[in-house]
């Protein structure tokens, strides 16, 4: 029984990291119908920012996790620059296919750029302890502080994000732009600013995810966003791409599938099961768990 609970907790922790990343994919897809392949690499950018700012933060007497603030700023800037420099010009001139190719190019560009920076280089870097070590025992189950913080922070962020999109003026503007750009313009909404804001928020979430990922797996390397980003993307599709609660749900489901497969079957099967679940769900419900099967809106 204690294995079960331990597995459940690990799954939820992993799942909330996937969910935070999946939100970035889904928000960008929702607003410009683009799969932002570079989003996984924003995690890498966040990871390095955390690693490089931890010594500074510690010298100031603050706990290591405070470095996430720097990562949030850097990731938001990188995300918004990507939109401004690469995606916006292509969106004006090109087709969906050119935009997709640009996204793949951006991903490769960020990974190679990182390698070319001397302080980063090709070898992985290891992070120091991020949250305090140890944990709290509940009967036979131990909850590490890392887990507790990860779960609480993700839950709070998702709640805030959901409230923002549902209840605030800017959040409503975002939903309008994702639904109908011409009508949004007629309402006086600056569509380009709204898209930029979406990139900023999505990339900032990737920075938080990077911190939590490092808290668990303290290693940063330039291609770390690859598989991590892919699984988060799978989460977004599983939940219903473009739907914010879908990304949250999809992330949790993928995290649980991965941790239960690892515990009860074999860790080498975990990724296989993740993609198997995706295929099964998409065959039954092509638009994802929370998606409406109405075909793409044009």
């Amino acid at each position: 029984m204690s294995t079960f609970f331990q597995t459940l907790i690990v799954g939820l922790r992993l799942g909330s990291i996937y969910a935070l990343i999946a939100l970035g994919y889904t928000m960008v897809y929702g607003i410009i119908r683009l799969i932002n392949f570079a989003h996984g690499d924003f995690i890498m950018v966040g990871g390095y920012t955390v690693i490089f700012t931890i010594p500074l933060v510690l010298r100031l007497g603050a706990p290591a996790w405070v470095s996430v603030l720097a990562a949030v700023v850097v990731c938001a800037l990188v995300g918004m620059s990507t939109e401004l420099i690469a995606y916006r010009p292509v969106r004006k001139k090109g087709t969906n296919m050119t935009a997709l190719i640009t996204a793949i190019a951006m991903s490769l560009f960020l990974e190679n750029l990182a390698q070319a920076i001397p302080v980063i280089g090709p070898n992985p870097k290891v992070s120091t302890q991020i949250f305090r070590a140890g944990g709290i025992r509940f009967g036979t189950v131990t909850m590490e502080y890392t887990t507790i913080f990860t779960l609480i922070i993700s839950a709070v962020i998702m709640l805030v994000l959901y409230t923002f999109t549902q209840k605030t003026r800017l959040g409503r503007a975002m939903r309008c732009v994702s639904e109908d750009k011409a009508a949004a313009t007629l309402m006086g909404i600056n569509v380009n600013h709204t898209i930029l804001l979406t990139f900023g928020i999505g990339s900032a979430l990737a920075a938080v995810a990077a911190l939590m990922y490092l808290a668990q797996y303290p290693k940063v390397y330039t291609t770390m966003g690859g598989l991590l980003g892919l699984k988060a993307f799978v989460s977004a599709v599983l939940g219903g791409i473009g739907i914010i609660p879908g990304a949250m749900l999809g992330g949790i489901v993928i995290g649980l599938v991965e941790s239960f497969t690892t515990s009860y079957i074999s860790s080498s099967m975990a990724d296989t099961f993740v993609f198997l679940i995706l295929i099964i769900v998409l065959v039954i419900k092509p638009a994802g768990i929370l998606g409406k099967n109405v075909g793409e809106k044009v």
């Binding site: 409503r172 939903r175 309008c176 639904e179 109908d180 011409a182 009508a183 007629l186």
Partner: peptide, 8 residues
């Protein structure tokens, strides 16, 4: 064609 925001 009205263009109301259907999901709002």
């Amino acid at each position: 064609g009205r263009h109301v925001f259907a999901r709002l």
